[in-house]
């Protein structure tokens, strides 16, 4: 399952965003941010305690099951009054959750997290980005491994000169995706597809902002 990978904003930034907002209602999410320990029940409770100590009045807290789904009327019924009493909602979900909630409520929303990438849990506590949604997929020629996503420079014609021993120039903990692609194509006996000269990427493939309207059937 793809996941929204998030990171808690700095205390200073959250304090700045909440400046002058005395009454706060905190929202977490039971899905991705629970998995990454950035907006599940324990983190929401810890935030509640931390803000209370700083003198904020916490009107309530909840962890919705899936913040990027519309809020249910049950949830709004249960927590509606507490949210109404607040000056702002501090949302400990990914940006999708923040925006979904903002769309439904006439309330100031303050994100407590930064959304880093859309990825996948590839090992215990390890998350990797899998697709940047470029709209011009070339993984049919790269052994099913995406260089646009996983190469730091998004290179499509092979590695840069900064790679060393299969690792990336910017972080020796990151694999050089072109070494991975090479090894995979070598295994598959398809190294020839690495020799295909890829033209410059077509950035029209990625609509900005992304919007699609399906033609009527």
């Amino acid at each position: 399952m793809i996941r929204s990978i998030t990171q808690l904003k700095s205390e200073e930034e959250i304090d700045r965003l909440l400046e002058g907002l005395m009454r706060v209602f905190i929202v977490g999410c039971g899905t991705c941010v629970t998995l990454t320990h950035t907006g599940g029940e324990p983190e929401v409770t810890a935030m509640n305690e931390s803000l209370s100590k700083k003198g904020k009045l916490i009107t309530g807290q909840t962890v919705v099951p899936v913040a990027c789904d519309n809020l249910t009327s049950d949830m709004l019924g249960e927590f509606g009054p507490q949210m109404d009493q607040s000056d702002a909602l501090l949302i400990m979900t990914c940006a999708f959750g923040v925006q979904t909630i903002a769309r439904q409520l006439k309330k100031m929303v303050v994100p407590a997290l930064d959304t880093l990438f859309i990825g996948k849990e590839t090992g215990p506590g390890e998350f990797n980005e899998v697709c940047i949604q470029c709209g011009t997929c070339i993984i049919g020629e790269t052994g099913g491994i995406c260089p646009v996503t996983s190469c730091h420079k998004g290179l499509v014609n092979g590695p840069c000169g900064g790679t060393d021993n299969g690792k990336c120039e910017i972080d020796r903990r990151k694999d050089c995706v072109w070494t991975m692609i090479y090894n995979r194509l070598l295994d598959l006996g398809r190294l020839d597809s690495m020799r295909i000269i890829q033209p410059p990427r077509n950035h029209l493939g990625e609509p900005t902002p992304g919007k699609m309207i399906l033609p009527e059937a």
Binding site: K153, G158, C160, E169, I170, I197, P200
Partner: peptide
């Protein structure tokens, strides 16, 4: 040249481009 990563330099927060790569630039 492709170019070193921006993260190696003194403007780490800048946006890197890489619209082309070195072989495409030759072309």
């Amino acid at each position: 040249l492709t170019g070193d990563s921006i993260m190696l330099g003194d403007h780490k927060e800048a946006k890197s481009v890489f619209d082309l790569d070195s072989s495409q630039l030759v072309a």
